[in-house]
Design a binder for these strands. Structure first.
Lengths: 319, 319
DNA sequence: CCATTTATACTCTCCTTGAGCATAAGATGG
DNA sequence: CCATCTTATGCTCAAGGAGAGTATAAATGG
């Protein structure tokens, strides 16, 4: 902070100039797979210097994404701002501030001539997908590595504390899995040097934990975005931003499950959705289906006006 | 955003240099009054240029606050990052990025030689305190002004929509008051030009709505902080950061009520606190009390380890 | 001793939530 | 046409949580 807190925020001070970058976590869900827009062959999130030709950060992001994907960004939310002096390697070089955003959209067409494309987000976080039960890599690879890391602490008390943290965060030792702790899990793995990005000379060479790494701190930013979204879908009707105009309740359920990384009780899901009047029937039925055809629904945009930011619930509570 | 999304975030680009400021919403609660640290006679939040001598933004903020108040900042959370080109009036001047933080602490001593002091946050938002029922200014001043603003819309449909928004946001027309919509309320008042900071030549001179204004967008930042804190206390044990080491359950309840701006059911509050094992008895009793003396409690710091970020509930749900 | 004030223990009811059962409505293969 | 598979959809039930009220205890100042 400053030596002179009395100084107004608007007072420009020379000597603290930085560069401002935007980093975007753009999410879409296709066929039950949550995807994010990536560049550089999936090794980075789309990002670039902020251009002050726009009125605000949000406007800038919106304009850029619309140009890329061809249709409007449904929901945009600021995630976090990082400031690092080591960002460009040179400790004395220009400091950079990265402002990250979460945006929801649909996959569809990606603008031509861009190297951007969509990658499944579980490629980066294989341990986060619990739809088919806890992933094998958790028990087989992650848990043992974390146990080893806990044991490496200097005192028995610290060892116990470390392991307790691991168990809570990853739902080990018969604890419940909490799908919202995406960032905490990533940071714990980082702290245990099990993530290639951590880059501390760790002795062994090969990264011990599965999951595709990313440039700089992009995977951390992605983790922040996933965590935020998983929390948000429980009390705001944001899932609909990821859905086509018309959908069946099962499709909606699959999208929610894809994001949350866990399954929900079908009947209860439907009960909740319908009693909140979030959707209305279109009258048509789904075609091309196996089994009994399902009614098609559309999102009732009116609820946004009626209940404003009030609340929407999804059956994803921690038991 | 950028013309070249492929470019890595770490690539510094000349031409988009900005200045980075930190703005802090530092909260304390004394005698059932929520207070914030202010400077400039209460007209601004403490802020200043970010010094890159620190490892991260959080560290910088912590160090600064500790120097000011003499004891550590309990809880720190990033609020929002604003980027405005009009910040310093000069549209072509250096752009500024303001990164705002929420910090919880105790009032106690403010460092000597600083003009910082504590102001009650309801001085800035009188309409937000519903502990003694809906404040008079809501029905007498704000509601009529909003009604007038709604009527000024161009079509009957827009008029209805405007009023519906007002009613939802401010709990008018027998709707429930939602204490979390602090920011939405402030922004609505701004949109209706009822806030001096809005500064649009509005015809009449005197600001029509009560509440102390602040420099630049500081009151908006404060609203963001209050909203965030009101949401947070419902599911994280952050209130304890604002309490002395030992306290009675009623004191704790009064603090929660002060923040939320509404009363809670005493017996249910105690039930919730105790069944979650958030506190433990110190053995001592409160002195200097009217009525039956209350047991003193202290926060069980162990819960932070036991349940990690899991969940704490407070009886403040929307009915 | 009484009124007043606060602390604390219980109770009761309603609603939500998790979970399961049963039936309906299509397709498909014999 | 029937058996079977798959998904859709309606209904019930029990446990727990949340809101609200009643009753009693323990202090103080007259």
């Amino acid at each position: 902070m400053a030596r002179s807190p009395q100084k107004k925020a608007s007072a420009p001070a020379s000597g603290n100039a930085v560069t401002a970058d935007l980093v975007a976590v753009l999410v879409a869900v296709t066929d039950g797979t949550p995807k994010i827009m990536t560049i550089a062959g999936g090794a980075a999130l789309p990002s670039g210097p902020f251009e002050f030709t726009h009125r605000s950060l949000q406007t800038a992001l919106r304009a850029w994404v619309e140009a890329q994907t061809g249709h409007p960004l449904g929901y945009v939310e600021q995630l976090y701002t990082f400031a690092d002096r080591g960002r460009s390697g040179d400790a004395k070089g220009p400091h950079s501030v990265s402002i990250s955003y979460l945006g929801l959209t649909r996959e569809d067409r990606v603008g031509e001539g861009f190297e951007a494309h969509w990658s499944g987000w579980y490629d980066y976080f294989p341990w986060e997908d619990h739809r088919a039960g806890a992933p094998a890599c958790l028990a087989k690879i992650i848990a043992p590595q974390l146990k080893a890391w806990a044991k490496a602490a200097s005192s028995p008390m610290l060892q116990r504390e470390r392991w307790q943290r691991c168990a809570i965060t990853f739902g080990l030792d018969d604890r419940d899995w909490n799908e919202e702790l995406v960032l905490q899990r990533y940071e714990l793995l980082w702290e245990a040097s099990l993530i290639p990005e951590a880059g501390r000379a760790h002795g062994r060479e090969a990264p011990v934990v599965p999951g595709k790494p990313m440039t700089a701190d992009h995977r951390r930013i992605l983790a922040t975005g996933i965590a935020r979204l998983r929390a948000k879908i429980k009390y705001r009707p944001v899932v609909f931003e990821l859905m086509p105009a018309e959908f069946t309740l099962l499709q909606l359920q699959r999208s929610v499950e894809a994001l949350a990384g866990r399954l929900v009780h079908k009947q209860n899901f439907r009960r909740l959705i319908e009693q909140q009047e979030l959707v209305e029937e279109t009258g048509a039925m789904a075609a091309d289906t196996v089994g009994r055809p399902a009614k098609l629904f559309r999102f009732r945009h009116a609820v946004l006006a009626e209940r404003a930011v009030a609340g929407t619930k999804l059956p994803l509570s921690r038991t």
